[in-house]
Write a protein that binds this DNA or RNA. Structure first.
Lengths: 234, 234, 234, 234
DNA sequence: CATGAATGAGCTTTCATTCAT
DNA sequence: CATGAATGAAAGCTCATTCAT
């Protein structure tokens, strides 16, 4: 008989409608430890480079438990991605802006995104890994559709208010501005190692970071500034 | 251990100071075929995910030849990166701009970078892979220092001319503008798969590409526009 | 990336149209040693019970070589079955009978089958294992159709001659007689271990074997004897 | 080693000398469900191929219960074999023959065995599996000796009566006739999958089954017919 | 008795690499 | 230079079994 590669049904740690007891809490702890370890190791080595036993060891658990809770290496990786998206969305949801000051609120969005990337470097490497795989794994997640960014909506409110007050031009979309913010922060951090070769200088000193943050804010403010402030071509 | 032994001295295909004969030409062809195949496969699967025998098969050669020419899987990967940088720098060097029209020249730089990324998708995935590994491999390349971007210098010339003519502000650096251009193009293409989940829309249609290119050009023009055109904060 | 379970193309040891050199001969020896070891071990422990590393060790080779030559455990098992059928058919083909003495020739067929089973116990256990799996593996063999028994044809000749001479009845088919011969020999040997429990006696002494052989011959002779010799029912 | 520890004392479901209560009945049901599931799965996949958790799942119970009731996988397998023998012996015991008609009674025995095999295919595959293991498991059963076949005794009576009446020859033993009956039925069913390859025809149609049953009956009648009816050799 | 979690050995298979013509 | 065979470590995954409520 050949081995059946069909992934067995993985256990969800806590069943709904049941108060978790001591056992269940311990189980949840095991599951969480594996998930955290996997996040770290997949972020560091990618999906192919991340070894199952490295993860289980880092979680002070056993290979077997990975299959018990997540069904397969891929199942674990998908769970890591889902958790990553969830945490990012949660963080974005907590973003509280003063809409009365659109220009400052805009800067605040930039700072939020930039700082999130800086404080969660695994966010970047995991997304890169997933994009290397052409989104194959996240596509398998049943929750793949739930992850549309709250920040884009918030940013839409900010822009709208700014337009009303004549501070912003009306021809930019929240989507494009959000992408710009994300791009400038993400790329700088994501590609810092190869950038050194291209630029011939350090890009990861506190001063360099601060300078780049200021540059992003400035560029974004200019991008949304009313159109008539731009000089004619030439 | 057979897996990671001391790397033996790899052969360079064509020894300098010797006219290549028929044999040497065949050898060069083999070497090139391997390099091309490796570029494709490492770009698709990453360093860990790319299999040696997949590469040798794709090159219609043999595993053994990879070790003959490149010493090891890592040696091959480094050669791929060097070749990648070299080709990119060559392309940048061919960039001919009309400095008499700084604003148009600036847009031309954006278009060049954006199109290079679009036409060479393996450039992006290979750089991402290398950054995942924290630049570990390219650091081993003896030619690592040679790759500072010609485009940054050219862009410096463009900006300088624009400032002279009062078209650009004098407080932005070529480095920052170049990073901005690169970031906005790179990120959009690199992260297209996960962006779908975040944005809930296609980002890879011809129209979407055209729109984003226009947005980048506009944002960059605004970033370098004289400072006094920006409205006061509020 | 998930592991690709697709079986790679296994090597045939000696390519046609090429005189085997020293290397090829050694390779063939390796392949043969694995095949022999696998025959022994699958016969002893079944397909599931037979361990890959047990086989490679018994063949004084390496696990890896099994995959090199046979692609997978299942591929090896199929090769074992093909070899088993081939050897049996070859042995049957060598069966030389004196058709001038149909009665003696018939007994000779019984002795041949019985002795083949006795001398090749792995033939029985391997067939049993394959039948446990409902013929799943042999069905995958491209040579599955080539194994119709030569002995049935030979037996047909014997019966025909006997009928002509009035020694045998004309209403039995070679197929049925062959099945009878095979059944009585095969079952006795195949089930000898559980038969002990049923019968409460040894069935594997030389005397017991000789007695059973004589009984089969007698029963088969009676089965083909002319119909009018049978007494009426009662 | 966790894999093959000393077998702990398994529980018998219902202790003798105690009226089973509700709990005991539920326990018995669990035990029976496991036994039935195990019979099915060991019959289908053999001992090595049958998975403990496949069995517990099929029985809608838990792995743990198998160890509770049967001590180990092997203990369960032995229980399956014991149950198999017991049921077969019970069925044989229910065999009621009209000794006044020995010839018909003989045919009845053939029909009984043949139909039992046909209706209980797991009987065959489980016996084959046990014979593959050289009777290792059944030898461990404390009840191994109790299973001598009632049918052999009954068959002895039939033959004796037939001899008295001059219908059968006196030189055949009940054992040999029983083996002949068993062999011809068992082999035909057990080896049906590989027989297709040898014979190049279907062996499992209703017509083929009926023909073979008739052939067995005829062959057995001829085997026990008085010796003088056989023609001289030639 | 039932049930979820834990355990660690061992399984099949794959990998990068080297040997020997 | 090319090519088939060999090598051994290690990968992902599964197994029977036990622990602890």
């Amino acid at each position: 008989m050949t081995r059946a590669p069909a992934t067995p049904a993985p256990r969800r740690a806590v069943r709904p409608g049941r108060r978790p007891g001591v056992r269940a809490a311990a189980a949840q702890a095991t599951r969480d430890a594996i998930l955290r370890a996997a996040t770290r190791i997949f972020a560091k080595h990618g999906f192919d480079g991340g070894r199952v036993d490295q993860i289980s060891k880092a979680a002070k658990s056993y290979d077997r438990m990975i299959y018990y809770y997540f069904g397969s290496k891929e199942g674990l990786y998908i769970a890591v991605l889902e958790d990553l998206y969830r945490r990012f969305n949660e963080a974005e949801s907590r973003l509280a802006l003063d809409l009365a000051q659109p220009d400052e609120a805009l800067a605040e969005v930039v700072r939020f995104v930039w700082n999130y990337y800086r404080r969660n470097p695994e966010f970047i490497t995991l997304l890169n890994t997933e994009n290397l795989h052409r989104g194959r794994h996240i596509a398998k997640s049943p929750r793949a559709g739930d992850y549309s960014s709250p920040a884009v909506r918030v940013l839409g409110d900010v822009l709208e208010r700014g337009v009303e007050r004549g501070l912003f031009r009306s021809t930019v979309t929240a989507r494009d501005v959000y992408l710009m913010i994300a791009a400038m922060g993400y790329f700088y951090l994501s590609n810092r190692y190869t950038l050194s070769a291209f630029l011939g200088e350090r890009t990861d000193t506190p001063e360099a970071f601060a300078r780049w943050e200021a540059f992003i804010i400035d560029a974004v403010r200019r991008a949304v500034a009313p159109p008539d402030v731009l000089p004619p071509r030439g």
